[in-house]
Structures are given as structure tokens and as C-alpha cells.
Design a protein around this nucleic acid. Structure first.
Length: 818
DNA sequence: GTGCCTCGGGG
DNA sequence: GTGTACGAGGCAC
């Protein structure tokens, strides 16, 4: 007698049991209990496309070979009618016993004649399963089968059938956030092999805890003392086992917290078998380290923010403080972590560090909670697990969306490029967007128009895609893309491409959501807004994907045609605006900035309506906004304005600033300070004279050594052993001197140095702050290489020249100015 | 200009 | 694990 259960899948893996791959879907039942649903009837396969006119079915059916003392064979084949890039093909679906047989058999098949190509042989088994069985994580399914006995931490259910059960989404995963503080003396690198973890904090909706292995008096109920680091790590393991989170999150926990905990656990020979199948946490050390726990979704919220939503944030640095400030309007505690190790050694007060620790865990928790709607929408669109969505960039998300959709179009996916292909593709370049450069200066009554989702709507409206590119059926009939060279690129008039169908679907789905979003409550709004934003992000990534060298559906011609149409449309509206009586001051890619002159705001709206009546398909010109005034910035040295650098003020007095990059951490404090102050004075006080004089004063202060040494120190981290450097930058030279003095420096050491006066190369003039006197720094270096570059672009907005900044100022005029 | 190196996030 | 995915900017040459 079969049972039925309803559940939301969250994580998926497979195991070979009795020489059969068994899919394990870990998730939550409708009554919120952990479950593992097993499915053993899914067979690995891939496609073989024979050369036209050849029948190799029998040869494949009987294909066998021996290797590694094993016999590999094809278990069965099916001949299927498929499409490959829009064209009909007769393909052979080749099945194997185990997933790991696929790459072996694929290699061996390369010896067979008359094979055109082998496809879809590198799609991981569990992802293949999710696609073919139409299973989307986080949505509701019903499984039919029996409860079984498996060696798992959660009940298991052996399913015969798994079917979609409505559209309900799992919205309340149990999230547990973790954060650690470690012993790291100042100037020393982070060394998990040497230095202990001092405390571990957890934060969840209904649970807060800081474990620490040094006792002190306090009245905080969330602090729990343990006797040693070893006990601390055991507590870490125990806490997760007891709390049973669906999602374990942290900020950069892929790259720091979890690998550190693992390294320390190894030292004490503590097995971190947190996987729901009793497996140990898996650390993959690549450039981007990843940490995986079977059955528990490890979400590194930093990674998601940087990879997926960084483009939508104002901040340019993605540290916890900056991101939490922007997204949560909350900050990290103001604590100097360098003091922690000292305090620890000297048995001083460490309470504030525990509070700091818990706060960090709380911030990560809140970020995860806040971004959950966006993440779950990405999961629902791409059909990937949260774990995968978390670690993929845009091009991969687009690719997995296409891979998931391909079977619905009966399409076989193209292969990933070979190394040779990648090299060739990397060399290909093409013309990008059109930019109408502004003359720097101040303007009044500005109206901004932009084409809504320009590239996505072009791809949709002009049927762009590798499958419709230069089709033989429309040769000579279709109009060419306006590429402005002799390249003849056209797209089919008769059938819609796979890619453009999908992108139009994304656009219309988004438009629908934006329509209903207007009258929604706060809660509903957040989810729908996240959803429309995910759709937008994905649609916007298609163009880049088509031109991305690693893409399966790569097509330089498609990318080229997209920008060509883009240039055509923006130039077209530019011409029409001038004809209508506006003055165009700036245009870039998809937007047009005009001044009204003697026309009104209403005229501008009439204009955009007129344009829209003539646009094809889903293309639309939007009236983005009206701004009483604005300034356009000059970028590098030169008479002309720059792309994407401007500041506008709207009718409410709110500033809109674009294109001012912030300085990186290895700049001196003085450069950072000056940039910040100048932006403030110009953008808030509108007093460019004051900003200018301020910088002149700082430059003068530098010349006269009135800026203290501490503000000119540059911090650079040593990345490897000194002897391993071929090219010796300033910090390497300084590190060498430190080493000569007997100070232990190595990879990870933060080297502080100051560039001093002289005529030698910078490396030889870089000294340790303690080696030199207060006034030894090279004023010219700091003026020309630090302060001026930090503000130069900002001043070009106002027509000031770099030279004017550098003029020796008249001391008397400025008395008492600041 | 080319090529090598560093940064990010975390303590 | 049916693998393998950075990209921008500074300094030395």
C-alpha cells in the first residue's frame, strides 16, 4: 500500500546504491518536518548526433569496451527527433548505467566514425534529474511510495512517482546564521593552522548564542562559556544538529568561517559530519572556496550579494558594514578587532567583542532573510537549488535557465567551448553602445528618457538568437541588422527563436508583475518586487551571455546585432528629439538627456508617446524623469565630458549621482578623506568654490608637511613568500627589509609603508612608518598619485583644471576659511 | 603600451 | 564529480 507525502525539495544529491544511482531530495514536508525523498528510476544519458545520412544506431547499441578492469557499455538507445539551434536533427539518446560512465563512454565514442557531435554529456546528474522531472526546488511536490530505512539523520521516503502539486512556495526556511572571531594579532596573517577560534556566535529568529572559551563577568543571557577551543567546536557541531536549520548562512562563510572551523576541527580530530547523510562538510579549495553540507543548504550571503545583486547596489565595497548599512540601515559595532587578541592575552574585558560577534551573525541573518525572496525567485526561474544559485554568476544563471527550458522547445543544448574555441572567442571584439558625450557643465530643465530594457526588447522584437541567425529561408528577404559595416546579419522572419521567445516571456512576466505590484500590501510587495527584479536581472543578462566566451549559446553575431540595433534606436530618438525642438545634451546606450528649452514637461510626454507608436514589439521609450538642474562631469583630462558621470537634482531636492568611483583600501587615508569631503561639499552644499579651496588647502598642507604621517601610510598585503616574487612592488621591498630585521613576514602580512622623498624609483623610496621622521614623506607623490587622482574627475565637472589645484595658493586669502 | 601582481570578503 | 568560470587597476619595465 503506497503512501503519499507532500514536500518542498531544498537540496539534492545522488548516491550509487547496489550499482544504481539513487537521487536524494532533501527538503521539508508540508507539516514542516525534514525529509529525504529517494528516487532510483532515473537513468543517465546524453545525445549523439550522427552525421547527416548515416545510421549508427546499431553500432551504438552494441558498443562495449574494457577499461580499468571494467566493461563499459551503453545500456540502451533511443532514436529521437530533436532540434539543434533551430534545425531538425535525428539524434540518438544514449543511456549508461552510472553517471560516472558518461565521460568515459563519451571519450571512447570519439573513435567512432560518422558522429557529428556528442551533446549534453556534461550536465551533472542531479541537475539533469531536476530538469527532466520538472522539479523546481522550493516548490511543492507530491511523492507516492513508501517510508524506508536509510542511514540518514532524517526520515526517508522511497518514491515511485514525484509530481508537482500546485504553485505553493516554501517561504519560511529555518535560517541559522553563524560568525566566528579568531585570534589574529595585528600585522599577522590569518592562519587557521596556528591561531585558535575564540568565539562562535549563532543567530536565528528564535535563537541567539555566543560561545566563548574564556570566562568573564557579565549579564548577557546569550553568552555561554566553554572550557577550550575544542569544546567550542563541539558546541558548533552540536548547535547545528540540535537546531536543524534548512539554511546555514554567514558572511563570506565559504571563504572564511567554515573553512576555518574545519581546519581547527581537523586539528582536534573532530569529525564535522553535519551532512544529513552523516557525511563531513566538504570544502572545495579553488580560487573561490566553497563549503557544502549534504542536506543543509549553505548560503554564503556575501557571495550572492557580490555575484547577483551587486549591480543594483549603491555601494562599491561589499564588506558587511557597507552592505548592511545600505540594505538594512544597520551597522557593525564600532570595535577595533586588533584589540581582541591583546585583550584575550591580557585577560582584559572581552564582552564587547562577544556583542560584536553576535551582531555580525545577526546582520548576516537579516541579509539572508531580506534577500530570500530574490533568491527563491532565482531558484524558481532557473530551477537550480539555492546552493547553486548562490554560487553562480549571471551568465551561468542564464545558461541554466536556457538548459532548463531547452527540452520544452525540443532543443539539444550546444556544447561548452573547447580551449581553442575560448581562445578564438576571446579575441573577437565588436562595436558597443552609442554614447553622445555631454559638454561638461550645468544645465536646467532636464528630461531623461530611456528605452525600457533596451537589449532584451531588441533581442525579443528582432528575433535574435543563434537559431534564427542568417537562416537560409529568409536569405535575401530579411533586412540586415544595422551593423554599420559590411557584415550581413539577419534573423528569420518565419519562426521565432528559442532565445527571443524566452526573453519575451521574461519581459512580459515582469510587466505583469509590475502591474499587480501597485496595489499590494507590504509583505506581498516585497516578494513580487523581488520577483520582478529577478526577471529583470536575468533578461538583462541575455545580451552579455550571447557575447560571453564560455557560453553554450554563444554568438558574436547576435551580440553584435543587438548593439547595432541599440545604436540605431538611440540615434533615431536623438534625431527626432532635436527635430521636435529639444536640445539633446547627453545620451548613453539606452538613455537620452534633453533640455526642454521653450517646451514643457507635457510636450516631453507627448514626444515619448509619439515615439512609442512607431516602435516594434515590446520596445518602449520611457519618460524617466524631470530634473530642474544637473551637472555633467568631465572624466579624464580633456575638453569633452565623460560617459556615465553626472549628478542630477530632482524636484524634491534629492541628488542622483552616477559614476563616482570610490578609492580602494590600499590608498592612503588622506586620499580617501579628501574624496569624501569634496563629494559632500559639492553635492550637498553646492559650493564648488569651497570644495576647491579645501583641496588646495590639503595640497598645501601636504607640501608643508602639516598632514600627519599616519594619514599617508599605504597598506598592502603580501600575497606570497618574498622570494616568490618576480616583480617587486614597493610593499615587497619593505617586507624584505622587515624580514632582514628578523620580523616574521609572509603571505597575508599587511605591509604598511610610506613613500619618501628622493629621485629613486618608488620601491626604493618606500619605507616603514617607524623608520622615518614625520616630515619624510614625499609630498609630490601624495599630491600627484593619491589626492589629485581621487578628486580630479570631480573637479572637471566644474571646469577646474588639475593645474589650478596644483597652483601654490595665496596663504592670506584663505585665513579662517576652514 | 605590455605583463605581472594585488585586491576583494573574513580576523 | 556527466567538473574545472574573475575582473579591474597599479606599478615596473
Amino acid at each position: 500500500m503506497a503512501d503519499k507525502i507532500r514536500f518542498f525539495p531544498l537540496d539534492v544529491m545522488y548516491k550509487v546504491i547496489d550499482n544504481k544511482p539513487v537521487i536524494h531530495l532533501f527538503g521539508k514536508t508540508v507539516d514542516n518536518k525534514q525529509i529525504c525523498v529517494l528516487y532510483d528510476s532515473f537513468e543517465p544519458y546524453f545525445y549523439v548526433i550522427p552525421k547527416k545520412g548515416f545510421d549508427i544506431a546499431d553500432e551504438l547499441k552494441n558498443f562495449k569496451f574494457t577499461g580499468n578492469n571494467q566493461i563499459y557499455s551503453i545500456t540502451k538507445i533511443e532514436t529521437v527527433k530533436k532540434k539543434y539551434l533551430g534545425k531538425d536533427v535525428n539524434a540518438i539518446k544514449v543511456f549508461t548505467k552510472l553517471p560516472r560512465d558518461v565521460p568515459i563512454i563519451r571519450e571512447e565514442l570519439k573513435n567512432i566514425k560518422n558522429i557529428e557531435s556528442i551533446n549534453e554529456n556534461d550536465i551533472l546528474f542531479v541537475r539533469r534529474f531536476l530538469i527532466d522531472k520538472n522539479i523546481v526546488p522550493m516548490t511543492l511536490y507530491e511523492a507516492e511510495g513508501i517510508f524506508g530505512q536509510q542511514n540518514l539523520k532524517v526520515p526517508s521516503f522511497k518514491a515511485e512517482k514525484i509530481e508537482s502539486y500546485g504553485t505553493e512556495t516554501f517561504l519560511q526556511p529555518k535560517i541559522l546564521s553563524v560568525d566566528i572571531e579568531t585570534y589574529t594579532p595585528q600585522y599577522m596573517e590569518i592562519e587557521p593552522e596556528k591561531n585558535p577560534i575564540l568565539m562562535i556566535s549563532f543567530y536565528a529568529k528564535d535563537f541567539q548564542k555566543v560561545f566563548v572559551w574564556k570566562r568573564f563577568k557579565n549579564n548577557l543571557d546569550y553568552i555561554e562559556f566553554v572550557d577550550s577551543e575544542e569544546a567550542l567546536i563541539k558546541k558548533f557541531k552540536e548547535t547545528i544538529e540540535i537546531y536543524k536549520p534548512d539554511i546555514l548562512t554567514g558572511y563570506f562563510s565559504d571563504g572564511f568561517d567554515l573553512p576555518y572551523i574545519k581546519a581547527r576541527a581537523d586539528k582536534y580530530k573532530i569529525k564535522l559530519d553535519l551532512g544529513l547523510d552523516f557525511s563531513e562538510i566538504k570544502i572545495e579549495k579553488r580560487r573561490d572556496t566553497t563549503v557544502q553540507i549534504t542536506g543543509i543548504t549553505h548560503l554564503d550571503i556575501f557571495k550572492f550579494i557580490r555575484k547577483v545583486i551587486s549591480g543594483t547596489l549603491e555601494t562599491e565595497t561589499y564588506n558587511l558594514n557597507a552592505v548592511a548599512s545600505e540594505l538594512l540601515d544597520e551597522k557593525k559595532h564600532d570595535v577595533d578587532l586588533n584589540e581582541l587578541s591583546k585583550a584575550w592575552d591580557n585577560n582584559e574585558e572581552i564582552k564587547k567583542f562577544c556583542e560584536y560577534n553576535l551582531n555580525d551573525a545577526k546582520l548576516s541573518y537579516k541579509l539572508a532573510e531580506k534577500l530570500m525572496p530574490t533568491i527563491s525567485e532565482m531558484v524558481k526561474i532557473t530551477g537550480l537549488t539555492i546552493y547553486d544559485v548562490n554560487r553562480m554568476g549571471f551568465s551561468q544563471l542564464v545558461e541554466w535557465y536556457l538548459l532548463r527550458q531547452a527540452p520544452n522547445f525540443n532543443e539539444i543544448a550546444p556544447n561548452k567551448p573547447s580551449n581553442d574555441d575560448v581562445l578564438k572567442r576571446r579575441l573577437q571584439t565588436y562595436k558597443g553602445a552609442f554614447v553622445f558625450e555631454p559638454k561638461p557643465g550645468l544645465y536646467n530643465n532636464i528630461v531623461v528618457f530611456d528605452y525600457r530594457s533596451l537589449y532584451p526588447t531588441i533581442i525579443g522584437s528582432h528575433n535574435i538568437g543563434p537559431g534564427t541567425l542568417n537562416c537560409s529561408c529568409c536569405q535575401g528577404e530579411a533586412t540586415y541588422a544595422p551593423t554599420e559595416d559590411n557584415k550581413k546579419i539577419w534573423f528569420c522572419n518565419k519562426k521565432k527563436s528559442f532565445i527571443s521567445t524566452l526573453i519575451e516571456d521574461l519581459i512580459t512576466r515582469r510587466t505583469r508583475i509590475k502591474e499587480i505590484i501597485k496595489d499590494q500590501t507590504d509583505e506581498k510587495f516585497a516578494i513580487l518586487d523581488a520577483r520582478q527584479n529577478s526577471l529583470k536581472l536575468l533578461a538583462n543578462s541575455f545580451y552579455g551571455y550571447l557575447g560571453f566566451f564560455m557560453a553554450r549559446w554563444y554568438s558574436i553575431e547576435c551580440a553584435q546585432a543587438t548593439t547595432a540595433f541599440g545604436r540605431y534606436y538611440i540615434k533615431d530618438v536623438n534625431k527626432k528629439a532635436e527635430k521636435f525642438g529639444f536640445r539633446v545634451i547627453y545620451g548613453d546606450t539606452d538613455s537620452l538627456f534633453i533640455t526642454l528649452g521653450d517646451k514643457s514637461k507635457e510636450d516631453a510626454e507627448t514626444f515619448s508617446e509619439k515615439i512609442n507608436r512607431e516602435l516594434p514589439g515590446l520596445m518602449e521609450l520611457e519618460f524617466e524623469g524631470f530634473y530642474p538642474s544637473g551637472i555633467f562631469v568631465s572624466a579624464k583630462v580633456g575638453a569633452y565630458g565623460a560617459k556615465k558621470k553626472y549628478a542630477l537634482i530632482d524636484e524634491k531636492g534629492i541628488l542622483k549621482i552616477k559614476g563616482f568611483e570610490s578609492v580602494r583600501r590600499n590608498w592612503s587615508l588622506i586620499a580617501k578623506e579628501v574624496q569624501e569631503k569634496v563629494l559632500n561639499v559639492i553635492l550637498k552644499e553646492h559650493n564648488d568654490e569651497k570644495a576647491f579651496e579645501y583641496v588646495k588647502k590639503v595640497i598645501d598642507d601636504l607640501r608643508n608637511k602639516r598632514i600627519p604621517l599616519e594619514k599617508v601610510i599605504i597598506h598592502t598585503q603580501l600575497q606570497k613568500e618574498i622570494s616568490d616574487y618576480d616583480s617587486r612592488g614597493p610593499h615587497v621591498a619593505v617586507a624584505q627589509r622587515l624580514k632582514n630585521k628578523g620580523i616574521n613576514v609572509g603571505p597575508g602580512s599587511m605591509i604598511k609603508f610610506v613613500v619618501t622623498q628622493g629621485s629613486d624609483i618608488i620601491r626604493n623610496r618606500s619605507k616603514l612608518p617607524e623608520e622615518i621622521k614625520e616630515e619624510d614623506y614625499d609630498s609630490d607623490y601624495y599630491i600627484h598619485n593619491q589626492v589629485v587622482p581621487a578628486v580630479e574627475r570631480i573637479f572637471n565637472v566644474l571646469g577646474y583644471k588639475k593645474e589650478e589645484l596644483l597652483e601654490i595658493k595665496d596663504q592670506t586669502k584663505l585665513e579662517g576659511f576652514f
